[in-house]
């Protein structure tokens, strides 16, 4: 059951968007609508005002800039797959989101700000040590991906701020993405993993759907870089993650599978 939406704001420019956001801090921000529409239908979200960024220019671009590669928040999964310019980890994640219809509407910024622990692209940003750029009429700031998700569905975004995009720094190493879903399309992750390993230098083992937020396994990463045996790294991964039983899967399964994925990847290098 949904209350009527009484106001719809559709800014054409980023400046307008930021102004509206400042004036309407209670409005629900929507991009592709692939989450918002579902929440409204199911009654879990009852917005009275919506700030629709779908037609807003200045959010849907991708470019190499100083310090790395920038992805606008409004890029859809399909944009990422078509451009051929994105990091392979991101491409792999984008290809597993929903199905083609969802990929055509679902945006990178939407996935990040919806902040579902099971969001398919979220571990990618952790593995790539991305920075998020947000803005308000007061100015811009950058937040490391690792500190953006503060708790279950809780993000470091103030009521007058909009999410602008993602900066991926140049990084090296082997990478691996794996989503364990429920089926081959229209699937929500039971476990999702993005890993990057630069032997002797650094490693990121990032998971989704195994805790209240997307998370890295810092102890396992340290052990890996220090040259620990794969079995020990796997053991640390299983200790660090905090999965639960829910309607999609079990904690036992998630823990076992998370370790198996890491073992399979590291032993295949």
């Amino acid at each position: 059951m949904s209350a009527p939406v009484t106001a719809l704001f559709r800014p054409r420019t980023l400046n307008d968007a930021l102004k509206m956001r400042a004036e309407q801090p209670g409005a629900t921000v929507m991009a592709g609508g692939t989450d918002v529409m579902v929440y409204i239908e199911s009654g879990t979200l009852k917005p009275t005002a919506i700030l629709d960024l779908w037609g807003c220019s200045g959010l849907r671009w991708q470019q190499s800039i100083t310090g790395g590669q920038f992805h606008g928040a409004g890029l859809t999964c399909t944009d990422v797959l078509r451009s051929g310019q994105s990091h392979p980890l991101l491409e792999a994640a984008a290809a597993t989101v929903g199905a083609v219809q969802i990929q055509n509407r679902a945006t990178l910024g939407g996935n990040i700000c919806n902040a579902s622990p099971a969001g398919d692209t979220l571990p990618v940003w952790l593995a790539l040590k991305a920075e998020f750029e947000v803005a308000s009429v007061r100015g811009r700031r950058r937040i490391p991906a690792a500190s953006f998700w503060q708790g279950y569905k809780k993000i470091d975004l103030r009521p007058d701020e909009l999410f602008l995009g993602i900066l991926i720094p140049p990084l090296f190493g082997h990478t691996h993405f794996r989503k364990v879903g429920t089926r081959l399309a229209q699937s929500i992750s039971k476990v999702v993993f993005a890993g990057r390993y630069n032997p002797g230098v650094d490693a990121c083992l990032a998971f989704g759907a195994v805790g209240p937020t997307p998370m890295r396994c810092l102890k396992a990463e340290t052990a890996l870089v220090a040259g620990a045996a794969v079995d020990d790294v796997v053991q640390l991964v299983r200790e660090e993650i905090a999965p639960i039983d829910d309607i999609r899967s079990t904690a036992v399964y998630r823990r076992q599978v998370a370790g198996n994925i890491v073992r399979r990847w590291l032993t295949s290098l």
Partner: peptide, 24 residues
């Protein structure tokens, strides 16, 4: 079908009651 303590179906959406898709 996942039931709660009252016997009510919890996974009452197509995202969590999983039927095969054409890809499957």
């Amino acid at each position: 079908v996942v039931l709660d303590a009252r016997g009510c179906m919890r996974n009452d959406r197509l995202t969590n009651y999983i039927i095969p898709t054409a890809l499957d």
